[in-house]
């Protein structure tokens, strides 16, 4: 079972969350327990069909009929009224906009449901994701990447405290994916609580303070990416010479390791790299499954 830290600064607390779709024979979520601190970026890392999106949908109240307990700022999720939706912002996995309306019209329409004082300037939002030249074009003329960026700014336009991002870099080219990751880190710097689901090791590694590995509706491990990598990787360095000879050396006190120094001098070095595990490798070790399913 993953550790649930009990402090007073919890934004989201989930205990024994179970959920089964009405037309399914098996539970999609099988007793998840986790908590997210205020200002933390927390990630669910898992393959497709693991239950990542379902867990988020329960948390943003699209799916009802769960068992277990969910608290948002110490208040049961079931006791939150429609004011809950002013507190949260949701970045969906796939683009979902009115195709016949322009980007500006789409944003203004959904922004109109929030108090005016909370809404950010539309032009600034479009400039933030470099869509300002397309803001008055119908969304049907947007590429998938542009639509995803529109998803992103729609989620944050009312300045919510809690943000849910489902595969936030899906469909984006590497440059725009990096920009979105940077924007998410900016949101964290502004104190937002962020819950990300992803099957991208890179996204989880770069964004998340803590990640949970989720497989078949169960959490298998929860910790910071670095701790997980340290725990499952080797504190060693691998040296490869151009001659093809390879040796591994322990990292502690490597500067005083005479064997290491002698090996470096014995030929021309081709590569040196640490044997820290990637999150992908840690995931496989813990769950026995790959992320890219």
């Amino acid at each position: 079972m993953p550790e649930v830290r009990l402090t007073s600064n919890k934004m989201i607390k989930v205990e024994d969350l179970q959920f089964q779709y009405p037309n399914s024979d098996v539970k999609t979520l099988k007793g998840l327990s986790f908590s997210i601190e205020r200002g933390e970026v927390f990630g669910f890392l898992g393959p497709s069909g693991a239950g990542k999106s379902t867990a988020q949908k329960v948390l943003y109240k699209i799916l009802q009929g769960y068992t277990g307990r969910i608290e948002i700022e110490g208040k049961d999720l079931k006791d939150w009224g429609k004011d809950y939706f002013s507190k949260i912002g949701v970045g969906f996995e796939l683009p979902n906009h009115y195709l016949k309306l322009t980007g500006r019209e789409n944003l203004a329409l959904f922004g109109s449901f929030y108090p005016n004082s909370a809404i950010k300037d539309i032009r600034e939002l479009f400039e933030m994701v470099e869509l300002q030249d397309a803001m008055d074009k119908p969304v049907e003329a947007y590429s998938k990447g542009m639509k995803m960026r529109l998803n992103f700014i729609r989620a944050i336009q009312h300045n919510p405290d809690i943000l849910f991002f489902d595969e936030p870099t899906s469909g984006l080219d590497p440059v725009n994916a990096q920009k979105i990751r940077n924007h998410i880190l900016d949101l964290k710097a502004n104190g937002k609580t962020i819950f990300v689901t992803t099957h991208s090791m890179h996204t989880a590694d770069e964004l998340c303070d803590r990640v949970s590995f989720i497989v078949d509706g169960e959490l298998r491990a929860t910790d910071s990416p670095q701790t997980l990598k340290d725990q499952y990787g080797k504190e060693e360095v691998r040296v490869e010479l151009k001659s093809g000879e390879i040796k591994e050396f322990a990292l502690p006190s490597i500067g005083e390791n005479q064997a290491f120094i002698d090996f470096l001098k014995s030929g021309e070095v081709s590569h040196i790299h640490t044997l820290e595990a990637s999150l992908d490798e840690v995931f496989i070790q813990i769950t026995g499954q790959t992320l890219h399913v």
Partner: peptide, 17 residues
């Protein structure tokens, strides 16, 4: 159309009863 393009989902997460 709203359902087919999944825009309906967005109405599920805005402060509209």
């Amino acid at each position: 159309d709203e359902k087919e393009n999944s825009v309906a989902q967005v109405y599920g997460v805005v402060p509209l009863s």
